[in-house]
Design a protein around this nucleic acid. Sequence first.
RNA 1: GCAAGCGUGGCGGAACUGGCAGACGCACUGGACUCAAAAUCCAGCGGGGUCAAACCCGUGCGGGUUCGACUCCCGCCGCUUGCACCA
Length: 849
Amino acid sequence: MHYPFASIEEKWQRHWADNATYRVSDDHSKPKYYVLDMFPYPSGAGLHIGHPEGYTATDIVSRFKRMCGFNVLHPMGFDAFGLPTERYSMTTGIHPSIATANNIETFKRQLNAIGFDYDWSREVNTTLPEYYRWTQWMFLMMYNSWFDRSVGKARHIDELPIPVDVTSAADIETYRDAHRLAYIAYSPVNWCEALGTVLANEEVDEWKEKGYTVERRPMRQWMLRITEYAERLLEDLTLLDWPSSTLEMQRHWIGKSQGAEVHFPVQDHEHTITVFTTRPDTLFGATYLVVAPEHPIVDHIVADAHRTDVLSYREVTALKSDLERTELSKVKTGVFTGAYAINPANGVAVPIWVADYVLAHYGTGAIMAVPGHDERDHEFATSFGLPIVQVVTPIDGSTADVAVSAFSDDGIGMSSENSHVSLNGLPTADAKSTIIAWLESSGAGKERTQYRLRDWLFSRQRYWGEPIPIMFFEDGTKRALEADELPLLLPDVAEFKPAGTGESPLATVESWVNFVDPKTGKKARLETNTMPQWAGSCWYYLRYCDPRNAEIFCASDAERYWMGKDGVDLYVGGGEHAVLHLLYARFWHKVLYDFGYVSTPEPFKRLFHQGLIMGEDGRKMSKSLGNVVNPDEVISAHGADALRLYEMFLGPLEASKPWNTTGIEGVTRFLNRTWRMIATEDGALSPAVQDVSLPNDSERVLHATIKKTREDVDALSFNTAIAQLMIFVNEFTKLEVRPRSAMMQYLQCLAPFAPHITEELWQILGCHGSIHTSSFPEYDASKLVLDEIEIVVQISSKIRGKVIAPLNADAATIASLARQDEAIAKHLENKEIVREIFVPNKLINFIVK
RNA sequence: GCAAGCGUGGCGGAACUGGCAGACGCACUGGACUCAAAAUCCAGCGGGGUCAAACCCGUGCGGGUUCGACUCCCGCCGCUUGCACCA
């Protein structure tokens, strides 16, 4: 017999909505707790079973913290700009705003059916003008600023010192453009003909997997200068309570490396090739240079006899994708330019090669090749018969044969000497600092820190995104919109196909690209690119703090209160966002921080990634595999409380775990037992529940349950908390008379997990008000202590028995009790005890001979 | 290839700073209730061994530290994720 979950859940969901039970208070006198979910992209497919996992986790924390007296902010919204909706509109002709509204409605219905405690009055939707107005405002903030390296922070563009030799208005503007945090660049991008758009590097694989062709093509793009923040993004990771793997991934993505740049004069030319190396100590072993095929110097230095070879090599590599250049080319390729450069350390002329194993976009796009001490250079030198020289020897005195393989470990310098400097005999670290000092004094180079991180490609050739609020005039000048001109609304169009020229559908809208700017009276064209989907999610957590403010994106008092000293207290979302979203949001936050709009250097103090829920077959859920579980069906069969409880009971939140249809029976049974423990079948109070005091053993179970629930919810160990709640029910259903107060406290422990059934039983118990606004029970540590305790007795570390002893009994007492035990005495017969190990309240171990 | 994480019954998973391995649940087996079934309740449930016990083995594999190792260290094997010529 099932408790009537369907009617109970509907009843309370309506009640909570009607009574605004979860309305967030603006009472700033209470301590705040901000718990955030990564908001969903409202796809047409609706909610899948993975969504409720992270959402249930934060819902539990949110309800728990509220019961603990915190003013809790647990908001929800929609990240609704994006390509899938635009593509849907292309085929159906339905406007993306309509499709988005429909999808959001479905999502909200499904979310509400699970009983989440969102305050919908704070909902955000990134596609509404009231919202994207501020996304545009933040873009302009970056456009109107530059990064002052001397103070390590952003400042207004008007404060950028203009060099004295820059005088004309046009030159000043050009100079400013070269420093803005948002700037235009012509850079090779991933162009997808079929999609009619460029893709971010991180998007390429996804679309290639779907069968699309992606090629590289230079195009005019907006970029954000995130690289200026590389050091701060790296350093501030230490402030965060994040999964170590995510911290590691971010560190790796930023990719800081320290070394030096070295200038190699090109023989018989005016040019100099600057290389970046992390091993300047191996400079004497540099036997050739390699420049990337795209490097502009190639045109200047290539010898006539080699020009054809070099140009055709460059053509071939241009057709290769990044993937092909790396993964497929196991064997390194390259061609000689015919030119030579002078190694500044020893004056030796070394050949300059072009090879695509050197990347144009990293470092200086050129390297000094040290085949003796770098595996890649060694491989290349071997295939092309270039000289290999040893300049480092192993620290342990052994010998390394660099003709056979590169010795890339640190070691001791050798054969590295000129008339000014010697690295011979120096350990690698000392050799590095010695050669850098020489490079700097001789002008041949200097110390340099290099980051792998690249500037953020911030434009997309799409309709369904935030318009970039910049206009261009016929005379070649441009102007950014003023704050009071925002939002720059997306024009209402009926056609969503790309212009086909590489521009977005906006390029075909007459009023967008051909109008007179009322402010200047000049003929103007608006930027046709829109922002990438990452934009709206860079700051939505701030909007939740003050979602309806029309004056500013978030008032500073609301920001100071909700973002407090740690920012978002708990942020839960998928590990797939470990790098990009989290890095981009941190970057925007830091810019806002530099201008004093936010009070913390980091937005998300504690981060947690929920694991994937797999299909019953252990594989990833997907429509094509037919192993998708639909949350609506689970709710109608077992109820929302069972769905919530089961997703949490499945295993640790961070783990990937398979769904199991029979497994949910277990939590359903548990909820039914909970019901029968307190109520009769027809919903009246069970006669077994009475106002009596608790027997000692039961009292201990109650307090243990409160303690475990409190601790496990804080640690997000929901599966073990639920196990303890099950133990409670197993214990208390045995009692013929069940104390009412214990029932109440139990329900309060269960309430964050199963909000509907607990609310109903709370009412049946005759309690007033919502259980969810009651105070979470406290436990009494003294009730948890046993008078007597079981002590394990070991003989030579093997368990041979157990004795019951008073709490905190000493070794002598335990030993004598143990000797009285027949089985133990037998093991001790004719044995000499050579040692006795005693752990209070745990065990005693007799080591015998 | 590099980096990180993980390997525990038939299954999902517990196990605090090293101290009774397998909590809790699923599945399964037996019993009670029932004309019968479902639901519910009770009992059992790592392997070997025994009438029963004693006892022996057991946390991917091999070693080590320790009175004592799922837990710490070293080396393998396997799985997952991320990065992938970043000089």
